[in-house]
């Protein structure tokens, strides 16, 4: 791997953490907002809700939201 590519990948991770993950408040707020939104459609196990953000090579990010629901509301 070329040095520039290696630097870019490391930097993408660092910038993501600086902007988002390092701010514990931001993650807590996002989880709370998502729980409220999904709670309108599912009987959600709130503690099971997780959000992961992974950098993709083209400079974008893959955001994955995982949650377990006991049932689906009608």
């Amino acid at each position: 791997m070329k040095k520039a590519q290696w630097t870019a990948e490391r930097l993408q991770n660092v910038l993501m953490q600086d902007r988002f993950l390092q701010g514990a408040d931001s993650m807590a707020m996002l989880r709370s907002d998502l729980a409220n939104l999904l709670g309108d459609y599912f009987d959600l196990n709130r503690s099971s809700l997780s959000v992961t953000v992974n950098p993709v090579k083209d400079g974008s990010y893959r955001v994955t939201i995982e949650a377990t629901a006991v049932r689906v509301y009608r």
């Binding site: 070329k2 040095k3 590519q5 993408q12 083209d58 400079g59």
Partner: peptide, 16 residues
């Protein structure tokens, strides 16, 4: 930059 050892302007635009 040409030899891939330094970030290019395009790389920087993508990152920031």
């Amino acid at each position: 930059v040409a030899s891939g050892e330094m970030l290019s302007v395009d790389d920087i635009i993508k990152l920031l």
